[in-house]
Simulated assay, not measured.
Amino acid sequence: MSNLIPTGRTDIEWRNESTQKPPKAAVYPAEANADKILKAAYEHTATVWTGDFHNAKQVLAAMKKRVKRPSEKKRAGGGDAVAERSRNIQTAFHAHRMKQAQQSRILNMLAVEIGAGFTLDIPRAPDVKAALADVYGKPNDAPFLLPLNQLLGFIGAHEWHKKGVEIPALGGRIHVPFGVFSPLRGEYLDLIAAALAGSKFQTAFDIGTGSGIIAALLAKHGVPKITATDTNPRAVACACANFCRLDLDNIVIEKTDLFPAGCADLIVCNPPWLPAKPSSAVEAALYDPESRMLEGFLNGAAAHLNDGGEVWLVMSDLAEHLHLREQDFLPQCFQTASLEIAEVLQTRPKHAKAADENDPLAFARGREVTSLYRLKKAV
């Protein structure tokens, strides 16, 4: 989202990768501290930092401590707190999401001015040109304001993009820029790799390819012809780059919604797992409003499947534990789509949040199971 906002000097563009509304105005104070910036933030006014970059990061850290209520740590602890949260699980999830959004909006009120050509002209500022080019592409001609918290995220994402993420199941690295979901949760990749052992699929579709990791895994396991699809331009560019790095010339990528033309022996999809509204482009890989992508994929898969072929769906049951989806939702979707289960492979998540007792959703994450559903056309 971008918009022009008044600053007392001139109107200037405000950029924010989330769906948050822009501030009503922005100010350039000679001096500012965390309390003053927060006071202005609660009045919907952004503060543009013009001092030392490292001091700005310290102020942002102080703001984060202040916007997190002291009572949160206490509630996140003992069994009584867990029992209280569990009484209304769905409400707990939505309250957690709302708090995250509110805190993010307030923290994003500390901004910096990015000059023409992606320059940041404040003392001890790093060179941010490459990080911003990763996000925006062509350098800007006019200055714009950017939340410092997001700029730090862009810088971190750029470093990860250069370094890449080691994928044991692939035997290589996947490089992911900002705006494309990173395959940090490798347990579902292990399920796919196990299912591919001994398979003889000749053609495959990877629906919603994202970074291209699943398509690459299919290619590494000997599927000769693969088509990957996505609607996100950043994902399409990212996947193409990864296929080139891995020297995979048997994958075609198309910018299209769900299915390409034709049929395949294998159709794989790892859709967003939670039926909720995303608050940014990258969250579209996590949240699927009203399960629209999930149902669209399942309802269209049989028409694109060769005889004797399989549909593979990667899905977590976290939504069921959060009471966002009924327990019989998936079986009903399979039946409606004229698909039946041939096999289910399952594993437990291994990421840090799964074992974090202080996570607000720990009561659900602790029971989460990730499944690979191998589906066939119903007889």
Results as ranks from 00 to 15, higher is better:
Pro183Lys: 05
Glu343Asp: 15
Gly156Tyr: 10
Lys65Met: 12
Ile106Phe: 00
Gly79Asn: 04
Lys353Gly: 13
Asn299Pro: 01
Ala362Gly: 06
Ala337Gly: 05
Val82Gln: 13
Tyr136Gln: 07
Thr10Lys: 15
Asp190Pro: 02
Ala378Leu: 14
Leu132Thr: 11
Ala239Trp: 01
Asn306Cys: 09
Asp127Met: 02
Ala281Asn: 14
Ala169Glu: 15
Asp52Ala: 09
Val112Tyr: 01
Asp356Gly: 07
Ala111Trp: 02
Glu326Arg: 12
Ala195Asn: 03
Met315Asp: 01
Thr256Gln: 10
Gln20Val: 05
Lys73Ala: 13
Ile106Val: 15
Asn33Lys: 10
Lys225Gln: 13
Pro6Thr: 12
Ala216Ile: 01
Ala228Met: 11
Ala302Cys: 11
Val135Leu: 05
Ser104Trp: 08
Leu4Phe: 11
Glu13Ala: 14
Ala194Cys: 01
Leu286Ser: 10
Val27Gly: 06
Ala41Lys: 09
Arg66Pro: 06
Ala276His: 07
Ala116Tyr: 03
Gly186Met: 10
Cys238Ser: 07
Ile155Arg: 02
Arg173Val: 04
Gly164Arg: 10
Ala83Gln: 12
Val82Gly: 03
Ala378Pro: 07
Pro23Lys: 12
Val236Pro: 07
Ala215His: 06
Pro143Ser: 08
Leu170Gly: 04
Gly115Asn: 09
Gly208Phe: 12
Arg15His: 13
Ala157Trp: 04
Val282Gln: 14
Ala61Asn: 10
Ile89Tyr: 00
Leu286Asn: 09
Pro278Tyr: 13
Ala219Gly: 10
Trp160Val: 14
Leu120Thr: 08
Leu151Glu: 03
Asn140Met: 01
Ala352Lys: 15
Thr336Ile: 06
Ala284Met: 14
Thr209Val: 06
Pro147Asp: 00
Asp307Asn: 09
Asp11Ser: 14
Gly262Thr: 14
